[in-house]
Amino acid sequence: MNRLFKLISSILFLTFPVFYMTVSHASDDFRKRAPQVEETFTEDDDIRAEIVFGRELAARIIGKYGIYKNNDITQYVNMLGKGLSQYTNRPELEFRFAVLDTDSINAFAAPGGYIFITKGALKAIEDEAELAGVLAHEIAHVSERHIVKELDIKGKDESTVANIGRIIGGNTEFLRGVFTQMVDEAADILFEKGFKKQDEIDADRIATLIITTAGYDPSALSRYLKKISSDEKEGKTIGSTHPLFSERIEKIDTLLVDNNLAGKKYEIVKERFHENVRLR
């Protein structure tokens, strides 16, 4: 038995660096068991909890950056974003879009359908297809409930102290404290830690499919990422919450090739974008 233990240990010790170097990516989602995977969020209470939570998080985002007050641009971004949101699997949500008053290049999504893009990102975007790609990426974070799943936000369960349904209705300081802590964690994901890499890759994939279905250039998001990744190298962008551009770009490009979309001429709608977004 001792020899067996030493043999197994030695094999693992020797193979560790080989595995480590060769395996490019491994999501930890496979660790989820059936009860965690098969949770559904179709009940009204869950949706209400998601929206209430997202609204609180949206307030944090607005509080941090402020709203860029330009009705024309806001209306344009909303029109485009609401159109794209029709291609998601969340008809129960009303998506809302706003521009943040900061020159940093970024975009944020809060549960419940609250989508933000920064003024800096709009300056970096060159056409409507790219804007559609960025908005669709954030819409995908909402539609796939990335924050909801990460923080296990639920609206109806008699056994939980963090029952947001109960928190919404008033209740104790303790329950409100739990809610505030959860919003803090969500803000931490948006501003500091970022989404999980697999979540980002999934959002890119879904965004590319959405804009393609909507008739925009399928490579628009890839183009945008290439641009801001080069800006990042020059220190022009923040981008800290959307890491690993090269890997994301590679995945999108592979998706385009696999679906025979690479090089296809779709609409980029440059003129309309510049007519509505006058920031330079």
């Binding site: 193979t15 595995f19 395996v23 491994a26 999501s27 930890d28 496979f30």
Partner: peptide, 12 residues
């Protein structure tokens, strides 16, 4: 805890 490949986990 190490994930050497998808669906595999090694802990020590």
């Amino acid at each position: 805890m190490w994930t050497p490949a998808d669906r595999w986990s090694i802990g020590t």
